[in-house]
Design a protein around this nucleic acid. Sequence first.
DNA 1: AAAAAAC
Length: 511
Amino acid sequence: MSDPVVTNPSAASSDAPGAETRVSPQAPGPVPTFDQFGLSADILRAVVESGYTIPTPIQAQAIPVVLAGRDVMGAAQTGTGKTASFSLPIIQRLLPTASTSASPARHPVRALILTPTRELADQVAANVQAYSKHTPLRSTVVFGGVDMNPQSEALRRGVEILIATPGRLLDHVQQKTLNLGQVQMLVLDEADRMLDMGFLPDLQRILNLLPKERQTLLFSATFSGEIKKLAATYLRNPQTIEVARSNSTNANVRQIVFEIAESDKSGAVTQLIRERGLKQVLVFCNSKIGASRLARVLEKDGIVATAIHGDRTQGERMQALDAFKKGEIEALVATDVAARGLDITDLPAVINFDLPFSAEDYVHRIGRTGRAGATGDALSLCSPNERKQLADIEKLIKRPLEVMTLKVDVPVRRESSSGRRDERPARAERGEHRHARSEEPRRRSTSFERSHSRQQPVDDFFLKPYVASPASARKAQDEAAAEAERKSAPRQPLAALLGGLGMPRRTQSES
DNA sequence: AAAAAAC
């Protein structure tokens, strides 16, 4: 029996401009373990307590390279254990000189981790905190939208590892509550996203504040020309590490597209949640207003829903995400603020209420489900004027998506969330409401017809009960096994997947 | 076209 082990990372890159990135080949060898990296016992203990025993491919590749002090250009799918792949070796490298003194002067910022969104910063910080909890190293997180004072106080007391979003970080530098002169290690997480968001000037400012003598790790979903340029300017002889083809989607995620009229979409979301028995679903909209509106409509349909987007206060954002993670909310309706990197354990499904403008965002959105070896559903609602976006997505992921029609059959709502009358108010007017209780609920039935060569009836999909993946699925060893299985077994056609829904859709055997 | 991020 041979288990997958990671090959020499240098064999993994193919950097000709425009060339497709390749999956690094898996060679037979011994089972990799966290023990083999020479990490301190205090770190290993925290790793074990976090439930991990076998490093994921990105961890197996990156940890030795980071420990050796080299710069890294990393491309890894989300959900692959990327955060640990840089956090663990950072902690290890800072540990030998870690001070146990209470003096703030003995705890300068030596590692800086930058992320594009506040929620992601918070999440990375929680991971770093967990991995370093048995060490004397201190860490904290700073981002905008919240009071600066507690952050300033934490910085004043001294931290070795700082996680931040760029704007607030620079704010602290300007306020002189932060000095970056002793940073030895820098991580740019989701670097492509940061460039997309126009962070380049901020990044340049920050990079100019850092010592030239340092180790830089850049993680990005894609190695675009922009990213390569950034790397060429700020990285020194980086080792390229790729563990999965960028722009690829997870085989554990079943992707289905529903052709539907725009006006039927919110009813379709309610119906999918009801008929599929979804207890926890992340719904993506393209606009902040659209997300708020949909959350209100879902609430009217009796679904516990809330919105998360950039126009909500940071307190509301954090509360929404917390409640969602705890399972207190059925539908979290989000903009692309939630598209990247967020780790929601065993999230069973993602719904695209709107198809994203950028096909890459589709890959990131649906990457919130089917993480770490678990399975998930990615259901996308596509209106006639979104066909171009659908085509772009199929082109990016290099395969056609299964398209179905969706017959929306939900009770008539008297008012739309914006206060406008529904387009069919007549029978739902006040006078008739007293009859409604004893009768069949009033329904509107609409099906969006179209001639699509790949079109399939939707009935099979709804006949099968949804089976959530076991909680244990999030462990890293599961992911490694799933990866191996995926490589050895040919992909099943969708029909087979649909037919096998009575059983847990695990891609690996239980051990 | 839209989103995100400092005040």
